[in-house]
Write a protein that binds this DNA or RNA. Structure first.
Length: 592
DNA sequence: GCCGTTTTCGGCCCGACTGTTTTCAGTCG
């Protein structure tokens, strides 16, 4: 049997947490399993491998007990405790527990007292009004449980039809779309005379891949007037009753917005609280309690003085706790608190550090603009150099570029490079070459050798097993004419999962051959993801951030690639296209 | 079940909301 992957171990630990929750274990034990699952899911190396060396306990949240359970999963195919608990509770019970408003305690009582062990059984019991007779339940609870059960069953039918239920869960919006709405909202509110400060908080501020909703924090000299104005904005579909403390909105795109208005001297506290993440805040508060400080959205209470300190600025919150300011992108409880206490936080890359872009398309393949137009757009976006990397000979969408066409394209690019026609922009003749299923590329080495820049990407046969896909990509990495692998995992956020791949083997090959890995900045991709980018850079792989622009406006997405790099803890040194082209050129694998 | 500037036991974030209850447990973010 193959060794369990990190995501398989994480799923097993999450399940064990769920089962212990049903079994009535104390909440801290359940939280411990959830924390361990997160640690495993985010670990950059094989946790099974670590456990075999007795080193899984080096991961925060994993102790000797869970390490043993990982080994049991690897050696026996199951965790004994999970097998025992699965036999104790019907499978449908977990589904009931996940209904909104119903936790493990009340779900278990429904099971024990009314034998409710499935959504269908819950529907029947609620319809027959048997639930309201239970102590602690009433007609209102019965009503809302019936509605929740109906909704869950309807959602299940929709998912079965393939209309919804994609990975990432229902109702999440890709950050690019959400930020477009959120930034418009913030600008409109800032323009209103009643407002003072207005800022996005929440996961949008942390620049996560996708968001569930938007959090907006404001101060105002007339709070009620601002809340009312928010409810009246064109992009708002419906609003709850505006109040002094804010208003809840729903936009026409279905995105929920929670707008809070706060006193100026608590703006920092509220921003800190609502920026999250939950994991960051929990860890921050636990560490603070040990110093006698209690952090909430209202202030920092000091046990020693009994006083609650309010902070107008977020920086003050962190300073009170003895921490350096932590950039929002780092607030995921991935080591940032320890680093902030030790004054060892990384200095993160920013959009203005990028000097060039190394992946874009023109009308020669599937782009909408000419070489010249793309060059000028890139210059206006602040770049010094741009690689033109149209698709290759077997793209498959009718935009194939034959070897002869590519030669002509190389001449065109070199003729334009550095001229006034492209505002002095340095243009690099490149290609985005397909990695075919057997690992070969769809241009001959002779022509690849003529190119200034070669991106190699997978665009077909996504369903290969992990071993074959890994061999396919490592074969491309081993070709010294390949400079960088484009959008390594092939994922489309909220639409298509990554294909199966052994990431550590990719990193190993990239280190061995000096091949770079791309963070594709398209907000739908952000591929490498932040965890892979962090692990790859730590192993010494050169990272480049590319826009994959298909039109002149396509360079605006650089911020999403930079955000992924920042969430990966990367500074300008780790990102090779922050360097001048002459330095980057010397770093190409063919020069090793 | 994890963990340690209260260190191998005894803790383990904070507050709001809901529905049910006369003071709170459960759930959620």
């Amino acid at each position: 049997m193959a060794e369990p992957t990190n995501s398989e171990i994480a799923a097993a630990l999450d399940e064990l947490g769920d089962l212990h929750e049903l079994d009535g274990a104390i909440v801290h034990r359940i939280v411990a399993y959830r924390n361990a699952a997160k640690a495993v899911r985010e670990a950059p190396v094989s946790v099974t491998g670590m456990a075999r060396q007795g080193r899984a306990t080096e991961l925060a949240g994993i102790g000797a007990t869970i390490q043993e359970k990982v080994l049991a999963l690897a050696d026996e195919g199951a965790i004994p405790a999970a097998v025992r608990l699965r036999a104790k509770f019907p499978a449908g019970l977990l589904e009931i527990t996940r209904l909104p408003g119903l936790g493990p305690k009340r779900a278990r009582r429904l099971y024990e007292e009314l034998s409710i062990d499935s959504l269908a059984a819950l529907q029947t019991a609620a319809a027959a009004q048997r639930i309201r007779a239970l102590k602690g339940f009433g007609p209102r609870a019965e009503e809302s449980l019936l509605a929740a059960a109906n909704a869950a069953i309807a959602a299940r039918c929709v998912a079965a039809d393939g209309q919804d239920g994609r990975d990432g869960g229902p109702g999440r919006m890709v950050l690019g779309r959400a930020l477009a709405i959120g930034e418009q909202l913030v600008a409109a509110l800032l323009a209103h005379p009643a407002s003072e400060r207005v800022q996005l908080a929440g996961s949008a501020r942390r620049m996560t891949d996708s968001v569930k909703d938007l959090d907006v924090i404001a101060t105002a000299h007339e709070p009620l007037a601002l809340a009312r104005a928010a409810a009246e904005l064109d992009l708002v579909e419906s609003a709850q009753t505006p109040g002094e403390a804010g208003v809840r909105l729903r936009t026409h795109t279905g995105l929920r917005v929670d707008m809070r208005i706060v006193a100026p001297d608590q703006f920092g506290n509220l921003m800190q609280h609502f920026t999250g993440s939950k994991e960051h805040n929990v860890a921050l508060r636990e560490a603070s309690v040990r110093k006698g400080l209690h952090v909430s959205e209202y202030g920092v209470k000091d046990d020693a003085t009994g006083e609650t300190y309010r902070c107008a600025r977020e920086e003050e919150v962190y300073a009170l706790l003895g921490l350096d300011y932590i950039e929002p992108e780092l607030r995921e409880n991935r080591g940032e608190l320890t680093a902030a206490a030790a004054h060892a936080l990384p200095s993160l890359v920013s959009t203005s550090d990028l000097r060039g872009d190394l992946h874009c398309h023109t009308t020669t393949s599937d782009g909408t603009a000419s070489i010249q137009e793309m060059a000028i757009a890139a210059r206006e976006a602040g770049y010094e150099y741009l690689a033109i990397t149209d698709h290759s000979a077997s793209f498959g969408f009718g935009d194939e570029v034959s070897s002869d066409e590519l030669r002509a394209q190389i001449d065109r690019i070199h003729a334009l490079s550095g001229t006034d026609a492209v505002a002095g922009m340095r243009l690099l003749a490149g290609s985005e070459v397909n990695i075919l299923p057997d690992g070969s590329l769809d241009y001959a080495d002779e022509i690849l050798a003529e190119l200034d820049w070669v991106v190699a990407s997978v665009h077909s046969s996504f369903q290969m097993p992990a071993e074959a896909m890994t061999a396919r990509i490592t074969a491309a990495i081993a070709n010294p004419l390949v400079d960088v692998i484009g959008h390594l995992s092939g994922r489309k956020i909220e639409r298509r999962p990554p294909y199966a791949l052994h990431f550590p083997a990719i990193v190993e090959a990239a280190v061995a051959h000096g091949t770079m890995l791309e963070i594709n900045a398209s907000p739908d991709r952000r591929d490498l993801n932040e965890l892979h980018a962090r692990a790859a850079a730590a192993a010494g792989v050169g990272i480049v951030i590319n826009c994959d622009a298909h039109r002149t406006g396509g360079f605006e997405v650089a911020r999403y690639g930079v955000a992924t790099a920042r969430r990966a803890w990367l500074g300008p040194d780790a990102i090779l296209n922050t360097r001048p082209w002459v330095q980057l050129r010397a770093r190409r694998p063919r020069h090793r």
